[in-house]
Amino acid sequence: MIERYEIRLSGSGGQGLILGGKIIAEAAAIFDGHNAVQTQSYGPEARGGASKAEVVISDNEIDYPKAIQVDLLLALTQESCTKYSHDLKKSGILIVDSDAVKELPRGDFKVYAVPIIRLAIEEVGKAVVTNIVALGIITKISGIVTEEAMRKAILKRVPKGTEELNMKAFETGLKKGEELLAKGK
């Protein structure tokens, strides 16, 4: 029974975070059978600027669709980490791109620093799948959505012809997430 779980994906416009949010929401709502709402906030520019997507997952009806107290924050840029970490829950999870985020917010939460963009380039071959690598890490670390539901949702939402690349990105993220969890213990 999920009371209310809030995920915020943040970075800069063009990093695919809104698509990432939609994938988590679809995995949770359609394939795992919970309720989920994905909302977004972005600037007028097509690329750059701080951008965020939020997903609220619950087994109750979701009244307020935006995040109130974030359980898990992903930050791919320093700007988004600084701007969007203020309402991260006590003992919440913060996942940052360790190449981009050097200054961590103070607070009582679990931090996972991973070179996510570098992982996408070096292990999958393309920076464009950074968002899907991040989804793999989030899936493992949060445990809030099932891996199977995520795979289905990714395949449903990514452009035709990129399925294999995106699956590789997701598996790369899962593997990294597992390593991080093991290290945490």
Binding site: G21, A29, I30, A36, V37, Q38, T39, Q40
Partner: peptide, 9 residues
Amino acid sequence: EIVGHSTEK
């Protein structure tokens, strides 16, 4: 904008 851009069931 919130209603227009919220994705849900």
